[in-house]
């Protein structure tokens, strides 16, 4: 299991390839990548991501440990960035390895749902009109209930 919090970009290809070289008894690997999305009706200049140093690393690790135990993952990777990102840049990735695909998919979905609403990150969108904090959606919280 590896959990990384960093400001710098990460290399999705290199990270995915290194992760896939992990274990021989893992028949399924799932990766998910989150990207800064532009909007058709308003031009996004940047997205700023703030976090809570100390608690962020602990929360990411706790979530990854729980996913690993719950879905019998052979390995898990979580990379999350902070700071100022431009549209099209990758914000974060998760990768899960399991013996069978359902656990790998479920493990990745679990990681994403909990990272979204239980890891202390806050996003702010910067447009020509100013800056606005991204509000959490009720569906984010509902997503946790299914686990």
């Amino acid at each position: 299991m590896r959990v990384v919090l960093q400001e710098a970009p990460f290399d999705l290809g290199a990270e995915s390839a290194a992760f896939a070289r992990g274990g021989r008894d893992m028949g399924a690997i799932v990766t998910f990548t989150g990207v800064v999305r532009d909007f058709p009706d308003r031009s996004l200049e940047a997205m700023e991501i703030e976090h809570y140093p100390g608690m962020t690393e602990a929360a990411m690790t706790g979530i990854a440990q729980e996913a690993t135990a719950r879905f019998s993952l052979g390995d898990a990777l979580v990379i999350h960035r902070y700071g100022r990102l431009r549209p099209g840049e990758m914000i974060m990735m998760v990768a899960t390895a399991a013996a069978h695909r359902q656990d790998a998919f479920d493990g990745a979905a679990f990681l994403m749902d909990f990272l979204k609403s239980r890891a202390p990150f806050w996003k702010r969108e910067i447009t020509a009109d100013g800056a606005e904090w991204v509000a959490a959606r009720e569906t984010d919280e509902d997503a946790l209930a299914r686990w």
């Binding site: 809570y52 994403m112 202390p120 990150f121 806050w122 996003k123 509000a135 959490a136």
Partner: peptide, 9 residues
């Protein structure tokens, strides 16, 4: 610490 609901991922 006080903060709004988190928006990670």
């Amino acid at each position: 610490a006080f903060f709004p609901p988190m928006t990670g991922g």
